[in-house]
Amino acid sequence: MGKLGQIAGTVTLAATVVLGGSPTAAVAAEAAAGAAGRAGRTAAGAGLPGLVAFVRDGDVFVSKGPGEQRLTSGGGHARPRWSPDGRRLAVLKRGQVWVMRADGTGQRRLTTRPAGGPSWSPDGGWIAFASLSCTGGPGVYRISATAENARPEVLFPRDCRGAELPEETTAGPVTGSLRERLQYDNAVAWSPDGARVAFRGGDCESVYDACLSIGTVATGEERTVAAFGGGGSQNRGFAAVPSWRPDGARLSWTAYQEGETATENRPVHLVEYDTATGTERTVGGTLDRELAYVDAGRAVVTSRNNKGSWLTVLSLADGSRTLLRSGSQPSVQPLPH
């Protein structure tokens, strides 16, 4: 119960996390690159099939190629996520889930309780988000993306289904190092087939110090896919910010590990997990994070460049990389069906 109490104190704080390096450093790095250098770096973005939504200095932008459009102002925004039809975005605004059109208009708040990074159901009718559960630890809810004054419904833990919703609290900003901010980031990811949700924590936290779960929506059953500390594991670390490949065959997450020996230590990095075989591999480089799939062969990730956070197109086959622009927390607009 001590562990759950600790998590209960952090789940509301993690809702408004704005990740990345110092915004001042990122802007300075971009300026130092020069206009010609920026044009060359961003030109490769024209090869992406749709827009990339991302965060810079606490606001949401969209980009394709060398141009970009700012969708929000005033800061406090995090974790933009495209709807399955690519016409809307869900985003955290000061710890609440909001939705808006792809051009930033029609902004509307959905939740009144602190929330972790949202994710759309494949039919676009629901949005899943993380928030405090009836157990005192992090839980996963869904809420209608279209209904007025919709009430959240519990997805996980299963035992909280039908229970009274916890009292609403106020989320505050998260501070600390990149690792500390990522550790309690509660972004969730709804699978492309609609059957599962990946999320940080879950029933596995009764055994491990930190873990990542895949929950089955219909039954409420949970499966642990990454675990750190406790349960016989002698390591420390975390797995957070999950992302499904469009075909559902792979799940990625951002990880960190401290092993029994220095040779087993792993700074922030990306893991790709085969959902059929359970095998996993490291993709990208050191300090890469927040992978958003473009297709089976490419992804947009947040990387470090000139002491700032940059969006980078990563080849998942050979590891080749193309810098796009300064920013973090990418979400790739789905291809039209």
Rank of each mutant, 00 (worst) to 15 (best):
V225K: 04
Q234D: 14
V188A: 06
A210G: 08
V207R: 15
Y208I: 02
I214C: 03
G201W: 07
T224M: 07
W190A: 10
V207H: 12
R236A: 11
G231Q: 06
T216G: 06
I214H: 01
W190F: 09
D193I: 00
E221L: 11
G229K: 06
G230Y: 11
G229R: 14
A226H: 10
Y184Q: 03
F199Y: 11
R236D: 02
R196Y: 04
G232F: 09
L212Y: 08
R223F: 15
Q234Y: 08
D203V: 04
L212V: 13
T224Q: 03
S213Q: 05
D203Y: 02
E205H: 10
S191T: 10
G232M: 09
A198C: 11
R200A: 13
A195I: 00
A189S: 15
F199C: 02
R200M: 01
C211A: 05
P192V: 12
A189Y: 11
G215S: 01
E221F: 11
R223W: 10
G220V: 11
N186A: 08
E221N: 14
G229L: 12
T219K: 10
A187F: 05
A198F: 15
A187G: 15
C211E: 05
Y208E: 06
G229I: 06
V217D: 13
E222G: 00
W190S: 01
R223P: 08
V188Y: 05
S206C: 02
S233C: 06
A210S: 14
G194P: 00
T219P: 02
Y208T: 13
F199N: 01
F199T: 02
A218C: 08
F228N: 07
G232K: 09
T219G: 14
A189G: 00
A195F: 02
R223Q: 11
V217F: 01
S191Y: 07
